[in-house]
């Protein structure tokens, strides 16, 4: 049941990602909501859970949007894993540490995309990923800080439900 819930959440996130421009037509790009999901997975379920859910998010992103498999898969799985690994050792639940994670993940995501598109297609991404990241970071940080509490609340409700308690998803709490 819990897996079904998170698959539906993943679906809704991508629907929102691809249709939110109706509501915010003045924004040239939208925050990367899939990145928020990968971050959440790492923070909530540790390295292994972050890797698994991040990989699922990234693969779906690849299939739905870019049509080039591997880019989002690697980026989001690595994000989930790294955040989970850091969470198990160093990270706190402070908003600042989450904001830093979101900023670093945004930069890493763009650099991975840049490196892979160069390596696979021999194409140059339009702008320097670092320059791009500078104005995408605030958007992604805002989205992560807004979305994470909602996702955590949903996860807590699921965990509280007795029927879902025995599922395998590891939790740090």
């Amino acid at each position: 049941m819990r897996i079904v819930f998170w698959l539906v959440a993943l679906l809704l996130v991508f629907v929102a990602q691809t249709t939110a421009y109706h509501l915010f037509p003045w924004l040239p790009v939208m925050p990367d909501l899939a990145l928020a999901l990968a971050l959440f997975a790492g923070l909530r379920w540790g390295a292994a859970g972050g890797l698994r859910f991040g990989a699922a998010v990234g693969l779906f992103q690849d299939l739905l949007l870019s049509g080039t498999l591997g880019f989002g898969f690697f980026s989001k799985a690595a994000t989930g894993f790294t955040v989970g690994w850091l969470r198990e050792r160093y990270l706190t639940d402070w908003a600042l540490s989450r904001a830093i994670m979101a900023a670093a993940a945004t930069l890493a995501d763009l650099m991975i995309f840049d490196a892979l598109i160069k390596g696979l297609y021999g194409l140059e991404f339009a702008e320097n990923p670092v320059t791009l990241a500078l104005w995408r970071i605030p958007l992604n940080v805002a989205a992560v800080l807004a979305l994470l509490p909602l996702l955590e609340a949903a996860d807590r409700k699921l965990a509280a439900h007795s029927a879902w308690r025995n599922e395998e998803m590891p939790t740090l709490e």
């Binding site: 990602q17 790009v29 870019s66 880019f71 791009l132």
Partner: peptide, 10 residues
């Protein structure tokens, strides 16, 4: 729908 992350244009 459209890609709104700016990584791809579709």
């Amino acid at each position: 729908g459209r890609d709104t992350t700016g990584r791809v244009r579709m």
